[in-house]
Structures are given as structure tokens and as C-alpha cells.
Design a protein around this nucleic acid. Sequence first.
DNA 1: TTGTATGCGTTATCAC
DNA 2: GTGATAACGCATACAA
Lengths: 354, 354
Amino acid sequence: MNKVVRIKDIAEKANVSTGTVDRVLHNRGRVAEDVRQRVLKIAEELNYKPNILARALVNNKIYHIAALIPDPAHDNYWQAPKAGIEKAEEELQQYGMRVTQFCFDPFNAESFVKEADKVASRSFDGILVAPVFYRQSLSYFSKWKRQGIPFVLFNTHIPNYEPLMYIGQDSYQSGFLAAKLLHYGSKEKGSFVVAHIEEDVANSSHLISKEQGFVDYFVTQELESKYHTIQIDVQSSAQQTITQQLDKLFKANPDIRGVFVTNSKAFVMADYLAQRKLQQVDLVGYDLIEENLAHLNTNRINFLINQNPKGQGYWGILGLADHLIFKKKNNPIKYLPLDIITKENLHYYIEADQ
Amino acid sequence: MNKVVRIKDIAEKANVSTGTVDRVLHNRGRVAEDVRQRVLKIAEELNYKPNILARALVNNKIYHIAALIPDPAHDNYWQAPKAGIEKAEEELQQYGMRVTQFCFDPFNAESFVKEADKVASRSFDGILVAPVFYRQSLSYFSKWKRQGIPFVLFNTHIPNYEPLMYIGQDSYQSGFLAAKLLHYGSKEKGSFVVAHIEEDVANSSHLISKEQGFVDYFVTQELESKYHTIQIDVQSSAQQTITQQLDKLFKANPDIRGVFVTNSKAFVMADYLAQRKLQQVDLVGYDLIEENLAHLNTNRINFLINQNPKGQGYWGILGLADHLIFKKKNNPIKYLPLDIITKENLHYYIEADQ
DNA sequence: TTGTATGCGTTATCAC
DNA sequence: GTGATAACGCATACAA
């Protein structure tokens, strides 16, 4: 009793063969309409669920996936998504997944185009891409769409091209959260800084979203009179050194209570604060990269917001596998949680085996 | 090229049959030692990984699992683990998992014994249990151990009986984390309260661990001179009402900056603080139950520490499935992350579909 | 001690 | 249009 329903069970009940049931279930045609209806009805009644194990077993095709991601050599952050991709590949390789990585320089749009062209010139069964260059990405999306190649976006969302899935960050909300953390830590009147470090802000919409979320926190709570937010753009390529730029900032604003760094470069600010012995200034940033962790452990960084970058790569590949191998439908958007990381809960997130 | 290695491949290379390879790989004996060595060596060289799909497919037994958990009707918290168990059951039922729930009253040890006896009287293939009653649990553990029935513990860890797996909370560390959160929020000198609400503290070792972690935070940071910690035990069954008990506390300690509630009853404290308009007192508690969420959204609770209670049930069943069905080894301890939840990142955790 | 044959549920091919 | 059957990789009962 309570046995799992198989195609064979449906076939027996409908007085047809398993081949017919299969044709009905997969809409392969060549089946009489009345039989079709009957089979469909019985499958429904018996609550038939295909056995994905058997399905994956029989379907021993090799699926070639392209992963188009920034090169960790240029920005350490991308080590994590890469690791997630590789973990998923390892788990799924016995079911036929083969991932080829195409790494581009995240600071060089041409490099992206070059790698994307490589991907486009071969025929892949699926593509995972971190489309950090908005303009340059679009033509590839429409091409893949036309060719019917499923592609999954992560890290940066670009709607309108209906990717199979988007996985990643809610930038605005993370800025909002950062504001809450700094606000909670500084009950007295003062200023907060939103710092973009070593970034081309104009071309990075997610940084603007983060800043907007940060500012909006104080607006929606009607705290603007109590807390002042200052935006700053720090570049080592500028005329002044970073230290000089920050000296200027802190000199002009002696009431700074906290700093929000919108990318993974919080350690730069932490170095500065340590150097100037500004111990009372709180600091919130992003990403569990090594340079940041050192400061987290010494409390020079109070919180890091983490968006499970390893998980982004992992779930991206898994999403493609669900589609290609297991024929399972997935939610087209998967926002990963905004994890708040501090020294005391850090280790659960870096050991992260999932 | 790059093909997946099968038993058949090993057999060919070793000039034996698949049956022999199988006997070697499963240590079923009845195989010549030299052959054994040869097969083992080849399997190693070829980096053989069994295909768990095929394995699960062929092994179509029904596995009966007992889930021995507190009844959500008595404490809403247990709704989440229950949901996780049911989610895992749904996913795994086509591979033969059948879960029977045995719910006991978490405030009544006799009720636990009654349900545990029911479980023991039947023969299950595996057991998932939340052993909230320490003393009463032990005899069952040794019994199951003797019978060779794998059991997984969650929520409360009881070592020494070698469960297949423990999943859940690191109580001490969560207390430590709570201290950090309150400390970060209150830079000025003052007192913090550790409140046990409606609990039999003496019989709940995890509450003591939480308190210890909280206190130790200030000790290890050498902050004892600046921050004073006060322990309180609040019960509605006491002579005084809860409000009276808390009034007494706050009257005696006007410098209280924050309160740490060691269980899911933070909402009780939040109600009191709201009633007495003690808006400057920070509050950290546990668990995303509805009563707490209302206060989180109005900032009367600042942070809730969450240990993915749904995930605890889910991973518990999955651990048993990995052992019974997929014959996969798992880490015997799986601490779930200490998630820091605040109003601004809450929704990622309650939508949690995994 | 070893080899062979069968079946798990699904899919795909082929003959009717 | 339809049904029979082989194959996927593994486990196991049984034969040798």
C-alpha cells in the first residue's frame, strides 16, 4: 500500500502500454485523442510524479555548460563564485555536467567581449554568466535567447531578456541593512559616510542601488535631521593618495560615527581608521575576503554583509542542471539571504560546505 | 574521453566480473585476497565514484523513520522543524522514505516517555529526535544503539551516545553573539540582563550555555568593569506577575542598556518594554515566531538570532536518507549558522524555501 | 571463490 | 497509433 506510482501503473490502469503513456506525458504526439485524455486523467488521479533518478540514469548525455565569470586573479571576490561553480560541477559531473570556465577581467569590458565571443562561437547546452558589463551583455543575451540556449544570470540582474534564472543580490536592500546596522550602533547625532572605493560608480548600477538604500533608510525613518550622510568616491588613481583623501573627509566632518563601504574594499578604510586611531568609528562592508576577515577579527570592521557568493555560483549551476538534466522547474529569481556577519558568527559562514 | 568510471570498467581492467568487483567494494568477503587488492587498486586509480542514482534506483525498499518531536500545539517554535521534516519527506518519499511523527508535550517529561515508548515498540529504520528531556532520553539512546537503529539528534546535543548525526544549535556561541550585538549597540557603561522566561533553567543545559556564552563575552574582552550582567528568571507561575517581577528589576537597575532573552519569549520582554516606554533598552532574542516578528518590525526587538529551525528538521531527515538510501557518509555534527536577523533582512529567512 | 542474469523506472528505438 | 524491448549503473540471488 502507499506505493509510488510508476508509468507502468498508469499503463495498466489505462489498458495501454508504457510507450503510449510516455508519449502522452511528453507530448510526443502520435496517440489517439481519447487515449490521451484517459491517460492524462489517470496520471492526475494517481498523482504521478516521475522518478528523477531513473530519468537521470537513462539520460546519460553530456551537458556542456559555459561559466562566464570575472577572473579571481583581478578581484579576489570572484574566488568564491568560482569555488561554488566547481563544487556543483563535482557533484553533478556523474550526471553528465561539464563546465568550462571563461574568465574575463572585470575591469576591462573588451576582455568580457572577447570571452563572450568564445562562448558564442561554440555550442553550449547552457550558460552561467555574471554580467557585470551591462551594455556589452545585451547582444549576447538576445543571441542566446534566439538560439534557445538557457542562460542563468548571477551577481548582477538584467531583466527584460528572461534568463532561465537570476541568482543573487538585492543591492538596495543591503544598503538599507547597512544603514540599520550603523544606526543601531550609534545612538547619538552624527554623520555617516557612504564610501565607494576603487570603483567606476557611474557604470555600476548596483553601487548606486546600495547607496540609495543606505540613504533611504534615514529618510523613511525620518532620521535625516539627526543623521547626516556623506557620499565619497575614493580612488588610488586620483591626484591625492587615499590617506589624503580620507584625511580631508574626516577633518571636514569630525562628527562621523560610521562608514559604509559599498564593495569588498572595507579593509582599505579599516587600515586608514587603524592608522589614524579612529577607534570610535564603526565600519560596515561586504564580502568575506581575507583582507576583510583580519579586520573583522580585530573589531576594526564591525559587520560584513555577505551574499553567499559561493552559493551564487553553486546554485547557478544547479539551476541549469535542474533544467537540463532533471527537467525540474525552478523559481526564476533566487535572492540569497543578506547574511550579517560579525566576528562571533563568522566561522559558520566560511566553513560553509553548502 | 573523460567518461565516468563504472563497476564494469573496473571489472574489465581487473579481468574479473562485476559481481566480484561489487563484493570487493562492499566488503562482502568470499573473494581471493590478491583479487581484492587488485580490484581495490584499480578502483582507486580510476577514481571510481558509485552512481548514487543507480544505487538508489535499485534499492527500492521502504524506509520507516520516526520523528520524535515536541508538539507545535504546545510551543509554536516547533512548527518550523516539523515543516522541515515534512518538506524532506515530500522530497524523499519517492525514494522510499516514510516518516511517522510522534509529538510530545515539551513541558511534560511523561508525555515524552510515552511517545518514545511508542517509537521503541515498533521497529523503525531510523529515528530523528529532539531530546529536550535529557535524563529521560538516555535509556532510549542506549537501546537504539544496541539495536543498531541509527538516530539523529537535533536542537539539543547529547554526546556520548554517538548519534549518527547532531544538527543544530551552538548555544554557547549564540550567547556570545548576543552579547556582541548588545555591546555594539550600547557604547556607554551600563548593565545587561540575561532573562530566562518561562523556563525550567535547571533542567535545560542549553539555556545555561547561552548565559555562559553571554557572560564570557564580557570577560574575554575584559569589559567586566564597564558592563555589568544581571541574570533573571521570570515565570508567570511565580507569586508576582511578570510585570511586577520586571518592574522590580528595572527599578533596582536604572542603568540597564539591553536585555538578552535566552529563548523564543523575547516578545514578553518587548511587551513590557513597550508598556513602560523603555525605548532606549535594546533587546536580543531567538527565533522567528510570529509574536517576535511583530516586535522586530516595530524595532522593539533589535535582533533575533535564528538557527534555521526548519532546516534542522529538514537536514535531520536528509541525514538519515543519506545514510540509509544513498549510503553517503555525513559529518556527524552539523552546526547551522547563527543567523542575525533584523527587520531589514528578515524576509529572506522567512520565505526560506530551503 | 567467481560469474551470470535479472530488475529497479524511465526513455527511446523499432517493428507492427 | 501502438506495444514490445533494450539500455542506463548498480545490487543481488543463484548458478557454476
